[in-house]
Design a protein around this nucleic acid. Structure first.
Lengths: 134, 134
DNA sequence: ATATAAGTATCCCATCATAGGAAGGTCAAG
DNA sequence: CTTGACCTTCCTATGATGGGATACTTATAT
C-alpha cells in the first residue's frame, strides 16, 4: 500500500500543476498531505482522486468557492443531490450569461467590421462607432 | 472655452470611474490633464471624447493593450483602416472562442443536471461526473 | 464665520486563478 | 563528486477594477 507519490507525480497524474496543488493546500481546499522526514509532500490515491475532482470542476468553470462546496458534498455520503443541483444550475445560468455577453460584443463588432474596407484608406466604421457608439 | 471639468464630472460624462480615469493616466493610456494650482485635474472636451472612446471599447471587451493601439490609430488621421480591422477581427475570434468554451461547459453541466433528481437522495450524476468525467 | 459635507490627491491593498522566479535543501544517476 | 531533477518556502506578477486610509480643498448650510 505504499502508493504514495511526490507532488510532481501527483501533478502528472491529475493535470493540476504542483504550484496549484500547494496553493489548494494553502487555502484549505485540500488537506495537508503526509510529509516524509525531508518535508516532501506525499500523496495517496485518495488525494489524487480529490485533485482530479477539482481539476474537472475547474474545467467546467466552477469557482474555487463552488468547488469547496462541491467537495464537501462529494465527501458527504448522506448529502442530498438537491444542493448539488442548485449549485450547478446557478453556475449554468452564470456561464450562459457570460457567453451571451461575449457573443453580443462579437456580433456588434462583426457588423462594424463587415462595413470596414480594411484597406489603405482611413475611413473606418469601427473607429467611428467607438467615437460615438449608440 | 472654459469647458474644463473636474474628474468627477468627467466620470459622470463618460461613464468611466474617477478611479479608472486616474489609473488610465498612470499607465499612460491617456495624457496627464492640466492641473489647477490646487493640483486638481481638469479635463477638456477632447479628453472626455477619449475617455468615451475608451469606455465604449471596454464595453466591446477590448483589452487595454488593444485600446492603446486603437487610440493611436484613432488619433492618426492618415491611418489605414486595415490595421483597425485586423485588431477587430482578432478580437471577434477571441470573443467567439471564449463564448464557445463557456457554452460548452454549460451544455455539459446542463446534461448532467437534467439527470440529477435534485431531491433528498444522495445519488447525483453531477458529482459522479466530477468523480470520473469522460 | 464656522461647521459640515462633498470632492480631490496620493498610496496601499484586495480581488481571482495561475505562473514565474529566487534561494536553498535533497536525492539519484553519471 | 558533480550534475541535474526534484523539493521546499517566500515574493512577485498578471488585468481591470474597487475599497479604504489619510490629508487637503472647496462648497454648502447653519
Amino acid at each position: 500500500m505504499n502508493d504514495l507519490v511526490t507532488i510532481h507525480e501527483a501533478s502528472m497524474a491529475t493535470g493540476v500543476s504542483a504550484k496549484m496543488i500547494r496553493h489548494y493546500e494553502s487555502i484549505g481546499l485540500i488537506a495537508a498531505p503526509v510529509r516524509t522526514e525531508n518535508r516532501y509532500r506525499h500523496y495517496a490515491a485518495r488525494d489524487l482522486h480529490e485533485l482530479g475532482f477539482i481539476r474537472r470542476a475547474r474545467d467546467l468553470g466552477f469557482s474555487i468557492d463552488d468547488i469547496r462546496h462541491l467537495l464537501a458534498l462529494w465527501r458527504d455520503r448522506s448529502r442530498s443531490s438537491a444542493e448539488v443541483k442548485t449549485i450547478a444550475l446557478r453556475h449554468i445560468a452564470a456561464l450562459e450569461e457570460k457567453a451571451a455577453a461575449l457573443h453580443a460584443m462579437s456580433e456588434t463588432l462583426r457588423h462594424l467590421a463587415a462595413h470596414c474596407h480594411g484597406d489603405n484608406r482611413p475611413d473606418c466604421p469601427i473607429l467611428d462607432a467607438l467615437d460615438t457608439l449608440r
